[in-house]
């Protein structure tokens, strides 16, 4: 089974103070730690497990700058066979749709049975790129996948709905799946593992190699244009309990007695 996995390198912003930069259209990125998008780490793990079981190859592909090599290398260290980076100044400003067009154009030339993407990217959270790639390639898709079994030329997958409900769906190959977190446990990659693949070639393709026109991609090829970033209005905010830890603990105790019926 030949599998292609789309991955994105994103900043880890869960516990850092995010600042809007001078342009008002981006965040201050210096000092942020970047890593493979959480959802994509599950997608690449799933691909490698399938390869280990059924043979074939895993190709990782990402649209991004040179820094993206770091995440592509991580995937190679996990067990991917090949890495492709899609880089061109014409790609900048791409929204989800323009990104999907670039990815689909690159994938079109590769042999594949299955394409995996994450359900959503931690940064922009469009949750659209995977499904759009599928339609641009004329493939069936299933999104938010939490379980996957291969049966000959078809897959049996579990797709997550709301409230703990799932649906079981059958889909013919070739197909595209968007992977949900928790489907597996992504393997750990050691520094040694990364070092081993440090010399491995990462193929870089741009606009002309892909046979795309500049107006199809980047901002001009997008559906939406960013106007500005702003901090969410503070509105109702928690009353912050301050003081020594013991004093805070005392307050929590009182709240629990008062509101929680603690006896």
């Amino acid at each position: 089974m030949n599998i292609i996995v789309c991955i994105k390198r994103v900043p880890d912003t869960a516990d850092v103070d995010i600042v809007v930069d001078k342009s008002g259209k981006d965040i201050e990125k210096s000092g942020l730690v970047f890593d493979l998008n959480e959802w994509d780490s599950y997608a690449i793990e799933e691909a490698i497990r399938l390869k280990e079981k059924l043979g074939g190859t895993v190709t990782v592909i990402s649209m991004g700058g040179e820094d993206t090599n770091e995440s592509l290398r991580k995937c190679l260290a996990m067990g991917a066979d090949e890495a492709i980076r899609l880089t061109d100044s014409a790609f900048s400003g791409s929204d989800g749709y323009a990104t999907a067009k670039v990815l689909a154009q690159a994938i079109r030339r590769l042999p594949y049975d299955l394409i995996l993407t994450g359900t959503q990217a931690e940064d922009d959270g469009f949750a659209e790129v995977g499904v759009m790639v599928a339609k641009l390639l004329g493939l069936p898709h299933v999104s938010i996948v939490t379980r996957l079994e291969v049966e000959d030329r078809k897959l049996r997958v579990h797709r997550e709905l709301e409230g703990g409900l799932e649906e079981v769906v059958e889909v013919d190959l070739p197909a595209l799946l968007t992977i949900q977190t928790g489907i597996n446990e992504p393997r750990y990659v050691s520094i040694m593992g990364i070092r081993k693949v440090a010399k491995k070639e990462i193929r870089v393709l741009g606009l002309s190699e892909l046979g795309l026109q500049a107006e199809e991609v980047g901002l001009r090829g997008s559906d939406i244009e960013l106007q500005r970033f702003f901090l969410p209005p503070v509105g109702e905010w928690a009353q912050i309990l301050e003081g020594k830890p013991e004093e805070i603990a005392q307050r929590v105790f009182e709240i629990l007695k008062d509101k929680g019926g603690l006896v």
Binding site: I18, D123, R220, E225, F229, F230, P232
Partner: peptide, 14 residues
């Protein structure tokens, strides 16, 4: 709302 709810972004259709 992006970056896990830490930033709001205003967009228009192109």
């Amino acid at each position: 709302q992006i970056y896990g709810g830490k930033i709001n972004s205003e967009v228009t259709f192109l």
